[in-house]
């Protein structure tokens, strides 16, 4: 089989994701960034789906595309910024230096990926090349993930709930009216 349809879909949605991320970092208005972020998350969820992670694809759209981006848009709405308030004074020198740093990092990563024997010896990931055993076809299903998550990683799961609880308490405390930190670090009000 010379080519696989899942590979073509993967590369197409990867192109969409890269273009969306480029739009996210270049738009002046954060509302446009947030909208393109949703598109990016949908393209990324499609890639998860092709890599046989259907549960992660659903979670990606629900948690990231739904909950987190609504939170971002809600905060943008709360701030109610005027056009002159979102103006940034970024010098061309800083932009060029940032571009050099990130492109250099990409070249370094690409070199590491291309020369790694472990990565180059990895099998082809297209669906038609996967072994057809029950252990492989069931991997990534909701049932398999739930069994492994709750049987072997129960403690980590419970600790995550404590983390989320602390995050909720911290967020409520930080945004409480009259509790803002004053200049000398003491509390007012």
């Amino acid at each position: 089989m010379p080519e696989s349809i899942d590979a073509i879909v993967f590369y197409l949605s990867a192109i969409v994701a890269v273009v969306c991320s480029a739009v996210i970092v270049t738009r002046k208005n954060p509302v446009y960034s947030a909208v393109f972020m949703v598109l990016f998350f949908i393209a990324w969820a499609l890639n998860f789906l092709i890599l046989r992670a259907p549960f992660l694809a659903v979670i990606q759209v629900l948690v990231y595309g739904g909950a987190i981006m609504v939170l971002y848009l809600f905060v943008i709405m709360l701030l109610n910024l005027k056009p002159e308030e979102i103006k940034e004074e970024v010098t061309t020198q800083r932009k060029v230096l940032s571009a050099i740093a990130s492109v250099g990092l990409f070249i370094l990563l690409a070199w590491a990926i291309r020369t790694s024997p472990k990565v180059n010896d990895a099998p082809i990931l297209s669906n038609s090349f996967l072994p057809d055993t029950p252990a492989v076809t069931e991997a990534g299903s909701l049932e398999a993930i739930a069994m492994e998550l709750f049987e072997e990683h129960g403690l980590a799961f419970e600790l995550t709930s404590i983390l989320i609880l602390i995050a909720i308490i911290g967020a409520i405390y930080l945004t409480k009216k009259g509790k803002a930190l004053s200049h000398d670090g003491t509390h007012t009000g």
Binding site: P2, N47, K95, L109
Partner: peptide
């Protein structure tokens, strides 16, 4: 046109580097 691990990793690193560029250059 086949899905290989190094291409998946290259796409992920491209997105990572775009994120790095945004953090360094945006205010």
């Amino acid at each position: 046109t086949e899905l290989t691990l190094d291409n998946v990793l290259l796409i992920a690193s491209a997105i990572f580097c775009v994120g790095v560029y945004g953090i360094l250059s945006r205010q």
